[in-house]
Every structure is written in C-alpha cells, then in structure tokens.
Design a protein around this nucleic acid. Structure first.
Lengths: 175, 175
DNA sequence: TGGAATTAGTTCATCCTTAAAATGATATTT
DNA sequence: AAATATCATTTTAAGGATGAACTAATTCCA
C-alpha cells in the first residue's frame, strides 16, 4: 500500500510506533497513547522538513533553527539566550555556531562589557539565505497541515496550549 | 522567575522558540505557529523523559523505545520491521541492538529461512527491565498531562488524528 | 541455469546532542 | 585585596542519527 524503499532505507514506509506501551495498574494508558500520537505527528513533520532542507538547500534543521532564532533579534543575541530559546545545551551550540560562522551566515562578537559573553548575529548573507528557506519551510508546513480546517487548527492550537501549561507546571514543580 | 542552572546548563529555564518564524507573502503563519507549538510540547516531554530515564534507570530513550517495540511482539521482530515502527534508519539500529544484546536485554537470531534476516526479541531480563521502566514512564506522562481534562485529552487525540492524516496524505503524495 | 534486480543489514563519514568537567571572567564576601 | 562564588562558554567522551555506499542472500525471469 505504502512503500518506496530507497537504497538507504527509511522513507515513507513507516508504520507508527503509536500503540500502547503499557497497561499498568494505575494505567495512564490514555495519556501515553496521546503522547505517542503527539510524538508521531512531530516526528513525521520533522523528518520531512529535515529531508527537504537537505534536498533543496543542503542545510540541516539545527542550523535552520539557529538562523530562525537570530532572525528576530536585529542586534544579535547572547549565546546563552540562544541556547535557552532553542532548548539545546550550550555545548551543542559551540560547534553549530562555528560552522555557521565559517559559512558566513553568522557573526560572532565578544561583548566589550563582559568578555565571557558572545553576541551572535545574522550576517546579510545569513538573513537572505534564511528568508529564502523560511519561505519554503512555510509552504511545506502549510502543505502538510492543509487538510486541517481553520477550525481544527485553532482547536488544536488551543488544546496544545493547555497541554503546554500542564507540562510546564509539572516541570517547574516536580513531584 | 524560573531558573535552576545546573553546572552543565540547560534544565528548566527554557524559553520556547515558539513564535513566528516568517511572515511571507502567502503566509502559512498560522500553520507554522501551530507546528512550533506542537514541537515545543514534544520537546518538553521528550527531554524530561530522557532525563528521568537516565536518572532513575541509567537508560536512554532510544533503547527504551526499542524495548517498547519488542515488548508487544512475543516472538520477536525482524530488524527491518523495528526500523519502520521506530521511524529510524536501519543503520541506526545496528549499534543500538548491539548494545542491548551486550547488556542481555535483547536476543538476536538469524532466520533459518532467510539468512539475510535477523530476528530480535526481548530476553526475560529485558522484559522485566522494560516493564519496570514502562510503569514509571506512564506515571511521568500522566503527571505531565494531568492538568489536561479527560475531555481536552480526547479532543486533542482527535485533532492530532486529523493532523496525522493530513501529514500522511502529503507524504504519500508529495507536491 | 545464470545473470540481473531486489532485499536485509552493515559500514562509513558526518553531524547533532548531551552531561560533566574544565576554563576563564566577573561578582561577592570577608 | 584575597578568597570564594557565580556565570558564560568550551572541551571531552559517549551515544544517536542520517544518507550513501557496500556486502551478502534471495528472487525474478529470460
């Protein structure tokens, strides 16, 4: 029904890990199924975006995400701030930024006020490249989401907002 | 308001990359915002699950996911099938399975009918360890989702179902 | 049968990612 | 001012992930 198999495997013939993982005493089966469905949706979109970024622009998603963060910080951003916004470890950024500096999309300046601090910013080339990719990115997402009515989209947005609050509540107040 | 800063950075003080990435001619801004919110929720949960798996069981999420797939295949599973269900490349599994075989949680048998094929299965130790972790996993998810009413959960499940269909439609019929 | 295509997995090079430890700079005490 | 704490970033070691190239086994079919 649904196959494709490229030389290097993977592709469209995935199957969904989405089924119950457990059925324990106090259950939580519903939440777990919901979580798995959430994860499935995210993985499907994310994988496709990665694939297209590579194919069309020979670019990676982490690099794209980094440019996206910088794009709305006209005067650049402190590295630590980027780390928080991207939800990745600071150590991760070191190499990522390095590569983007090398390719000329990003500039890196040591703050004159505090020599520990770095300010990262988009170069003109980076800004142009990003805008280009972001346009396509928007189209891809629009395409993948297109069967969802405006109504459903709004509902989903709202429900996800509630979920996000629920998660954050637990995270900031463990146990 | 919300900080914690361990030696190695990251933790609770994330900020959400969730804001518009672009505002292009044909827009897609709503879909993109929805996508970013979806991604944020997934990342929050996933990161927390990783953290707790490591802390409580010194285990990784990919390994846990692999055990989860095998758990509901009494007689084991062909490696390629695992790859499809987990939505990861086959090459990825080679090392993952190797490590789980070493730790005694998984057995690997070459099929007698077709010597290209491998059958992977949980060992008794693997089954026990998995059940243990899966119980806790369910609790964590239940905890993070607990502020979502049953009604909201059901609604979210349904909306995500629609989204999943939309995505799959695009993937199996690109352009 | 015997060659070509297909299929299942592995290997390789490259990148991403993290936690933890280390480095180096600024702030805070005493 | 010296000692100490805190803070921003880098380094390191280890695991995950991918696409592409490769190996080996099976199937297809002329």
């Amino acid at each position: 029904m649904n196959s494709e198999s490229s030389t290097s495997g993977v592709s469209l013939d995935w199957v969904d890990g989405e089924t119950k993982v457990e059925e324990a005493p106090h259950d939580h089966g519903d939440e777990t199924r919901l979580w798995l469905r959430l994860l499935t949706c995210t993985t499907l979109v994310e994988t496709e975006v990665r694939r297209r970024l590579r194919e069309e622009f020979d670019f990676t998603l982490p690099r794209f995400d980094l440019l996206a963060q910088l794009e709305r910080a006209e005067d650049g951003m402190v590295l630590g701030e980027v780390s928080k916004r991207m939800m990745v470890s600071p150590g991760n950024l070191t190499a990522l930024v390095e590569r983007l500096v090398e390719s000329g999309y990003v500039s890196r300046t040591v703050s004159p006020k505090d020599r520990r601090v770095q300010i990262i910013a988009l170069t003109e080339a980076g800004r142009a490249a990003f805008r280009n990719m972001a346009d396509r990115h928007g189209e891809w997402i629009g395409d993948m989401f297109k069967q969802l009515s405006a109504r459903d989209g709004a509902a989903l947005m709202k429900e996800l907002g509630k979920l996000k609050n629920s998660i954050r509540a637990t995270l900031s107040n463990p146990q």
